[in-house]
């Protein structure tokens, strides 16, 4: 990471959900604090991974930052501008800077719309003209995410899981965002496809200087893509740091538990395999 310019900053984020037992007006009210005083800083051009188990509040945090949910308290600033109180018109501008890629591409893409309609929709909603016309624009976007541009008139169901997720990425990129929030964006994919999508995300970052907030539960995946890591547990960030520092010398007890729990292929087997593969290529 060369730049250290702060692009997005969250301070003292709190999100509470009110749970009501049945019984209408007479029901007990319970308050669930899903996000509890979370601070996060995103630097331009980096990938910050937010990891945690289910119920840790990582997805809620992502949604607060992308303003898909309203905060209970706290602030989110994008390039120095507060976004928690933005009006509808101002939100359009914010949305063209911060976009989200979701976990399940099939349920987050409208099955009745073609790729072209899906990727141009964000521009149309914001009342912007599509540069170079819809067809050309879609073709170039599809090329950027590694899809065949001739398939722009197809529907999401005609693509495989990995390809559909590429459409999700293309849709996010259509408005030219600076920050992309990836909410478990590779979690539903098979390993082989997962690797391709991770590589695509990395390539796009290198070429276009995107900033990622990468939400994941899989630490091994995080290791492949993150520059910095924030670990969440029960609504709080328990540890933040450079990736290698967190992975090599986790400071927090929970992080250590989490790392120890990850299943792994024995390193000696891996080494033997690589040595053999190397020999074969050499010989």
């Amino acid at each position: 990471m060369t730049t250290s310019e702060v692009i997005l900053q969250a301070r003292n984020l709190v999100k509470e959900f009110v749970l009501r037992d049945q019984g209408g007006l007479f029901g007990h009210k319970r308050i669930l604090r899903a996000v509890d005083d979370v601070d996060l800083t995103l630097y331009a051009g980096e990938t910050l991974a937010l990891v945690g188990e289910s119920g840790s509040g990582k997805s809620t945090t992502a949604r607060l930052i992308a303003r898909l949910l309203d905060v209970t308290s706290g602030s989110v600033q994008f390039q120095g501008e507060e976004v928690t109180g933005l009006s509808r018109a101002e939100l359009y501008r914010f949305r063209s800077n911060v976009q989200v890629v979701f976990q399940d591409p099939y349920s987050s893409l409208n099955p009745r719309h073609t790729v072209e309609r899906i990727v141009t929709a964000p521009l149309v909603y914001q009342g912007r003209t599509v540069p170079g016309g819809a067809r050309t624009f879609t073709r170039s976007l599809m090329e950027r995410v590694g899809l065949n541009p001739d398939h722009s008139a197809r529907f999401p169901s005609q693509f495989s899981g990995g390809q559909a997720q590429r459409i999700g990425i293309a849709r996010a990129l259509a408005v030219g965002p600076k920050v992309v929030v990836c909410d478990e964006a590779v979690s539903a994919l098979d390993v082989s496809v997962q690797a391709q999508v991770i590589n695509l995300l990395r390539k796009l970052q290198q070429e276009e200087g995107l900033t990622y907030l990468f939400i994941a539960h899989d630490l091994a995946v995080v290791r492949q893509i993150a520059h910095r890591v924030a670990v969440m547990n029960q609504g709080r960030v328990v540890e933040t740091g450079e990736r290698d520092a967190v992975f090599r010398e986790p400071a927090d007890e929970y992080t250590r538990t989490l790392l120890a729990a990850v299943p792994r292929i024995r390193p000696e087997w891996q080494a033997a395999r690589r040595a053999r593969a190397h020999d074969r290529r050499g010989g």
């Binding site: 899981g161 098979d190 390993v191 082989s192 496809v193 091994a220 290791r223």
Partner: peptide
């Protein structure tokens, strides 16, 4: 397949991908 598995201990390099073998819903 083994190459595609992200490993905790690995230093980060380009992940090798398996050919996107036909439609898979990855569900």
């Amino acid at each position: 397949l083994i190459d595609a598995v992200p490993q905790l201990e690995d230093d980060v390099g380009e992940l090798r991908a398996v050919g996107d073998a036909g439609p898979s819903r990855g569900g």
